[in-house]
Design a binder for these strands. Structure first.
Lengths: 215, 215
DNA sequence: AAGAGTTTGTGAACGTGGGAACAAACCGAG
DNA sequence: CTCGGTTTGTTCCCACGTTCACAAACTCTT
């Protein structure tokens, strides 16, 4: 389920606040979902709660981590160290929680050796060797759109079976390979779509008061 | 619909290839969706096709752009010019297609004046003035998680009604304000979840998992 | 120990979205 | 003008996900 990471983050927040136990209602509001949905999601991966009491935060956190697979080590390669790749390499959410960036690759040989986030940029042609050496299963594509499909193909033939794609292109992959696409401009467009359907602001002042009515 | 941006990009690709007209089948495969779904989506926003012929690429592209709201000008502010904010400011997909970054804000005053993507970083306290001056309706949050809610609150009180949040936190906003969250680490976790459930290559039992697009 | 009060887990209704099939409409040939 | 081929727009149906509601189970008090 795509909501498990949200639950996990909510549990981490509770843990930081030194909350030892919580009900499904509390956790649901913290995660921004319905409590029944949360209970069904959790029950789908085992009975980790206690009726009349709630869930043990630490225990549930571990169980969800294990379900997601965060108790394993996930070596990751990032290809395309432009602005975005640079940001991803430095992103703390990647390096923590089981994900370990083992290599930064770029097709531009003039950047080889440059130090980013404590790692030296290496040549893209080293991909297959690195994948085999570290047992990499997850690849991140942060290249321009034109190069994405080629990079993806070479990732797949090197043995990578899960791809996180930041390039604005639909990638075609063989059966058994997962692709998740994160399209930054699409997100903005979706916001604009909703924004356009909001208040008919016809050359008026900014409405400071709260408005009712959402789609 | 969240698929309109995908259709739009597919149409742009076709237009670059100088394709004047296309059927729903072609466009659907280019966008990676079912043709019936695409026709239903398009019919929901008007009858822009011709039976027996297909869709005029240029005309449909304009209609979708108008539906999304990309024919308008959308001034955008980005708050938090760390690695990610830096990447976003330089991201071409933002500056093109109606979105115009009018200001980069950061709470760290020592960075004020620094030039990023042709814009000078300004102090976060200028937010309200900038929003009113340019009529900004969309704000992008690229701050650390701890600051995100505070930044969001001030965005909302300044008049922003659509927020794109890259900080790993659930933001609570008043009625009428839209928030879209892009969580980079969640995406990786979802990939890991599916990866963990794939074929154990050592054993012969195939899971018969036909997951191409991940839900 | 028993009952009252909670809270989880789950069974059933509900609504929404996707997919196949079909009718309406358009083009071109004869 | 008519007929066959093609493609859109739409209707129907199914399956999934969400939500409500309730029984099972646990704790605490008396």
């Amino acid at each position: 389920m795509a909501r498990l990471p949200v639950y996990l983050r909510a549990l981490n927040s509770l843990l930081e606040a030194e909350v030892r136990s919580c009900s499904s209602e509390e956790l649901a509001t913290a995660a921004g979902v319905n409590s029944a949905k949360l209970r069904k999601d959790l029950s789908h991966l085992g009975s980790y709660g206690t009726r009349g009491v709630g869930y043990d935060v630490e225990y549930l956190r571990y169980q969800i981590s294990r379900e997601i697979g965060l108790t394993q080590d996930w070596p990751v390669v990032i290809v395309g160290i432009g602005n975005l790749g640079h940001a991803l390499a430095n992103y703390s959410g990647f390096s923590s929680r089981g994900f370990r960036t083992v290599a930064l690759l770029d097709a531009d040989d003039s950047r080889t050796g440059e130090l980013v986030a404590g790692l030296k940029i290496r040549a893209f042609r080293e991909l297959t060797a690195i994948v085999h050496e570290h047992g990499v299963a997850i690849g991140v594509i942060a290249t321009p759109a034109a190069a994405a499909q080629s990079v993806c193909d070479q990732m797949v033939s090197a043995g990578i079976r899960s791809v996180l794609n930041f390039a604005p292109t639909v990638l075609t992959v063989p059966e058994g390979v997962d692709v998740r696409m994160v399209d930054l401009s699409s997100e903005l467009q979706i916001l604009a779509y909703h924004e356009q359907r909001k208040a008919p602001l016809t050359s008026g002042a900014a409405p400071a008061a709260d408005d009712e009515g959402v789609a």
